[in-house]
């Protein structure tokens, strides 16, 4: 009975399939790194920058076809350039951040249009746009695993180094300055880490999943967890769970219809993340009036509210 149930959840061949293995490993790594970095991104209100970097780095990916360089270099390089541009035109300040991000994104996408056009004319690779945007998790080559692991460790290491000052400056810039934190430097390192994490995930699992895994798990975790470390841990866990769940469902979906046309992984992962976010809202709302306010500093309400005596 249990055996039959298990067999219907884990369709035959799931554990022996090479592409599924690779997808699970790379997807898992991308989910953990995105969850950790994304918690800070959500806390700092830089979701747009996170998404923009993934779109722009995808443009870099398309350039790499053209220039004949390694895609990794294309993705990471372009994300780095975009992060630098955002830093220069003031994405760290809350005012005008949205517009500054949009301008960099617009310029990057314009460039992408041109590069993809050249791709199509000179190398006759059509379909690059779709691969870059939607990714194809089951088509990742297992040879990229060591490279992805190395870059992920670098990203996690950078977060670890600036962990405390970054949390402090995310909660309050002034507080951090008083404590002698070099806010600008800390924030630049965060932006660079963000660029690295996003480029990695955009390259491996596509721009959509990159944004979904960056924002969704972090936002959900911040609604339920009351301590930063706990939030980061939960975000990584939610990311991992939704990614593996999505891979499982996508694999299963091959058997859902007779013509064996599987549904895309990205659809399942995104759906699971969205459900996790909605559920976290319910859970978080129930626990707020007993526990202190979650760390996710909700958007400062538009109308003055009663604050407790401090």
């Amino acid at each position: 009975m249990v055996d039959a149930l298990l067999r219907s959840v884990f369709e035959p061949g799931l554990f022996s399939s090479g592409p599924v293995h690779t997808a699970a490993i790379i997807g898992g790594i991308a989910a953990v790194v995105s969850g950790v970095v994304g918690t800070f991104t959500v806390m700092r209100g830089q979701s747009f920058a996170g998404h923009a970097l993934s779109d722009v780095s995808a443009a870099g990916g398309s350039a790499s076809f053209l220039l004949g360089i390694s895609p990794l270099l294309g993705f990471v390089g372009m994300a780095g350039i975009a992060a630098g541009g955002m830093e220069m035109i003031g994405v760290q300040r809350a005012r005008g951040r949205d517009l500054a991000t949009g301008i960099v994104l617009g310029a990057g996408l314009g460039l992408a249009a041109l590069l993809l056009y050249f791709d199509a004319t000179f190398t006759s690779t059509t379909g690059a746009a779709i691969t870059v945007l939607f990714g194809s998790m089951f088509a990742i080559s297992s040879s990229t695993i060591p490279l992805v692991v190395a870059f992920s460790l670098v990203a996690l290491g950078m977060i670890l180094v600036v962990y405390r000052p970054l949390i402090l400056s995310s909660v309050s810039t002034e507080l951090a300055q008083v404590r002698g934190v070099r806010v600008r430097l800390t924030e630049s390192i965060h932006l660079l880490t963000l660029a690295l994490a996003v480029a990695l995930s955009a390259m491996t699992i596509g721009a959509i999943l990159s944004t979904a895994l960056l924002i969704g798990p972090g936002a959900a975790a911040l609604r339920v967890a009351h301590r930063p470390a706990w939030a980061i841990f939960s975000a990584a866990l939610i990311g991992l769970g939704t990614t593996w769940g999505g891979i499982l469902l996508a694999y299963d979906s091959y058997y859902w219809s007779s013509d064996h046309r599987g549904w895309p992984v990205s659809f399942f992962v995104v759906s699971l993340i969205f459900i996790a976010y909605l559920v976290s809202g319910r859970v978080g709302a129930r626990s707020t009036h007993r526990a202190p306010k979650p760390l996710a500093i909700e958007e400062i309400s538009s109308s003055p509210t009663q604050s407790t005596r401090s």
Binding site: S47, G50, I208, T211, G216, F267, F274
Partner: peptide, 22 residues
């Protein structure tokens, strides 16, 4: 919730549906 988070999530949900339709 946060406006930017809401925007990002709706975007990826729509694109996820898009991946399905495509």
């Amino acid at each position: 919730g946060k406006r930017d988070v809401a925007t990002a999530l709706i975007l990826v949900v729509l694109l996820g549906l898009g991946a399905l339709f495509l």
